[in-house]
Design a protein around this nucleic acid. Sequence first.
RNA 1: UGGGGCGUAGUUCAACGGUAGAGCACAAGGUUUUGAUCCUUGGCGUUGUAGGUUCGAAUCCUACCGCCCCAGCCA
Length: 569
Amino acid sequence: MSENKAPKLDFIRTIVATDIANDKNDSRLVTRFPPEPNGYLHIGHAKSICLNFGLAEEYEQGVCHLRFDDTNPAKEDTEYAEAIKEDVKWLGFDWGDNLFYASDYFDQLYDYAVQLIEMGKAYVCSLNAEEVREHRGTLTEPGKDSPYRDRTVAENLQLFTAMKNGEHEEGSHVLRAKIDMASPNMNMRDPAIYRIRKLDHHRTGDKWCIYPMYDFTHCLSDATERITHSLCTLEFADHRPLYDWFLDVLQTRDHPQQIEFSRLNLTYTVMSKRKLMQLVQENMVNGWDDPRMLTISGLRKRGYTPASIRDFCKIIGISKRDSSTDMGILENCIRNDLNPIAPRRMGVLKPLKIVITNYPEDQEDEIICKNHPKDEGMGTRTVTFGRDIWIDRDDFMEDPPKKFFRLGPGREVRLRFAYLVTCDEYIKDENGEVVELRCTYDPESRGGSAPDGRKVKGTIQWVSVKHGLDCEVRLYDRLFKSENPEEDKDVDFKENLNPDSLQVLTNCKIEPSIANTKVDEQIQLERVGFFCLEARTSTPDSIVLNRTVTLRDNWAGKQGTKTPKMNKK
RNA sequence: UGGGGCGUAGUUCAACGGUAGAGCACAAGGUUUUGAUCCUUGGCGUUGUAGGUUCGAAUCCUACCGCCCCAGCCA
């Protein structure tokens, strides 16, 4: 933890610190996280959550609201809102009493709209959607005024009321702000502020058939909640003049400051809700919480901890540059978090049987194993050793290179915490595949060190054939095979899906103590990676493990021969 | 070709007029009964380009170049 290091403030924190020092907003600090409940939260939202809630935590007077931006009944649902609350909580943040919905403000927003009309700053436009588009002009040409732009206040009021009362069809009218059709900023060309939608809203039911637009709703919700700093992503920078316009014209008591920062991009994945939704709906993944998804719920299922995600958000920082963060950084964060706290266990993913020929048939050994190599406080456990042992297939090579520190014909290796064994022969089946090793052990090497002091470089994990448990292990890899799946506009991003992103191993062997692992508890399988229980599928009788992340493997990189890992570059 | 935003090591970010730094990545050592962890050490940049102001510029000015965003009755 770098808590004590000189805190380098990002540009937003610098602004906030300055504002507080200058007693702006009476030194209040109120931020908000404003998700639309139309999908699940992902790691990009985590960045925003950590910024908004994190900032509030950094100041004694700081407060962060959770506000649902639920102004579009066609897309939103309570299911999403509930999932979002759970995710924010899980990340470790607390909105206290400050849970709001933009829909809570519908009455007030309606009044504001009426005020705008009365001021002559808004009008009901009866152009259809296509006509509106034609009147809007282009990036380089100014728009044309709507023929309805000069309706009288009385007429506008009457029409708007009729809209509210459901007397008009969807699409027949829209309430627009009267600003400037020639503005170089498209957002200022008389933007729509209310549209007719004869749809039930997940919270207000059938009370409304007109719904306010984002630009109108957001700034006024912020002002109503007395938000001081309204943080959003870069694409809203062009909306800021409009944000300010509404608040200025309506002379709200408070005028929050909108500040934009760049959104998070990660290599080997996609971040847009629309695309994530597509993966879910087309069954390319198993739901929003598929461990390969970079959703909060997916990461949770994968075994990521809230602390690791918060650490990640801290490390990547805040700026206004378009950037793409290496997936390896995220992985590094979870390794760092888990390494000191995850108890070590032994497991074999691809079992290969070895028979220790000079070990008595019915003999057993109770081997004491440390739960953590550096933390004595984590205690020990006992694992039973016997004549028949599983080791990992990858830990044997028929014709190993010199620097292969594991098993090969005539080579000696240490079975972790147990004995030194030497491979005398290997047995192949009719397909030429190695199916069993015959080894001899050094009875004097109990615990793993030789009495004569000879050095044995390699140590491998093992599981007793008699005592080990069967287990299913799910290995996850990056969801996409290309660093930027969206790079080529002519290629559907789904073409870049990694076909091997999920590998299910059903014949794994694990030491019995793993049966006691609890949901939400991470373990490290030594030399393999960090794992957690597959909460939905795993039972004490039929264990299923999810691999959170591999251990770092410098050797694989040097060899260039092993299967690529997510962190390989 | 209108408007807005952004260009600093491989990457993510600092430095806000005074010899360009950090994390991650990378490389080389050491420790190690996990090829993990941990500890040392190392290099990495014509600060997008070209001018200008200044004793001094990543920082200020000018021009140019490149990338991103905006023409939903989405957020």
